[in-house]
């Protein structure tokens, strides 16, 4: 290995492994100090690891409804998120297109959207439960889906609208000169030109739907990482709260990375 290559290798090692580890170390130290001094109920890092071990070592075990491996819980949560997220995209994308295309549509619905957008998932959930009360036992699941969809829809709606408005007039003029039909203009010009914006919206929406799932599971008690977290809080097993938080964070991070990859593919298009 020549020295230049070695230098490069060292720099990458420092950047990608050493420096992030320092950050992790600082947090672990603060965490240990806190649990030893002012937050007596907070389990220390080692205690957390010991209590979490069965859930991590056997991530897909199923010992009972609310006693399952952590990845199994994650898998339940991801399934619920996927459903809610797809609903959000199916509803949000067309709304975004209409907002981008029609000024009248924007004037009618934009104020409403601006008011509904900042409402917290915790506020939507009870409404969702009430809406689907006729579903009986399934009310919780539908309520959760409703909450995920309505909370995660907004970035898709707004980014799609911005994307449609940003389509250069020149491209549309090409369509007019060629006398493309409305449908052809939509599929060959508007949609491809808007795709990069749409995917930015899709990525942000995915982040939010993952954020919402935990809250939804906590309140409805459906099995999943969020439900597990809330149950373990009630059972006074605080180590598992920390385990759940870490898993939620890691999964959220992975989802965001994956979407960025997809997004960057469309950016270059």
């Amino acid at each position: 290995m020549n020295s230049q290559k070695f230098d490069h290798f060292v720099r990458r090692f420092v950047d990608l492994i050493l420096l992030p580890c320092i950050g992790l170390g600082i947090v672990l130290v603060l965490w240990s100090i806190s649990s030893a001094t002012w937050a007596k109920e907070l389990p220390s890092p080692t205690k957390t690891w010991e209590a979490s071990k069965p859930y991590v070592v056997e991530p897909f075990a199923k010992r009972g409804e609310m006693d399952q491996g952590i990845l199994r819980f994650t898998w339940y949560s991801l399934q619920l998120v996927a459903k809610g997220y797809v609903i959000a995209l199916l509803i949000g994308t067309p709304i975004g297109f209409f907002l981008g295309l029609s000024k009248t549509f924007t004037k009618i619905f934009d104020p409403l959207i601006q008011i509904l957008r900042p409402v917290s998932p915790l506020a939507w959930l009870p409404l969702g439960l009430v809406l689907f009360i006729s579903m009986g036992k399934e009310a919780g699941t539908y309520g959760a889906l409703f909450t995920i969809a309505i909370c995660s829809m907004w970035p898709t709606v707004l980014n799609t609208a911005v994307g449609v408005r940003a389509v250069p007039q020149d491209y549309l003029n090409v369509g007019r000169v060629l006398k493309l039909s409305r449908w052809k203009t939509l599929t060959t010009i508007l949609l491809p030109a808007t795709l990069p914006y749409m995917f930015t919206g899709f990525r942000l929406s995915l982040g939010i739907s993952w954020l919402v799932i935990v809250a939804a599971e906590m309140l409805t008690g459906t099995p999943g990482v969020g439900g597990f977290l809330w149950q373990e809080y009630n059972s006074l097993i605080y180590e598992h709260i920390i385990l759940s938080i870490i898993v939620i964070g890691v999964v959220g991070f992975i989802l965001d990375r994956l979407m960025s990859l997809v997004e960057s593919r469309f950016k270059t298009a």
């Binding site: 020149d170 491209y171 003029n173 090409v174 000169v177 060629l178 006398k179 060959t188 010009i189 491809p192 030109a193």
Partner: peptide, 14 residues
């Protein structure tokens, strides 16, 4: 309409 072929300043290719 396409009976008038327009060449734009920015070529306007998709």
């Amino acid at each position: 309409g396409p009976d008038r072929g327009v060449v734009f300043q920015s070529p306007c290719l998709l």
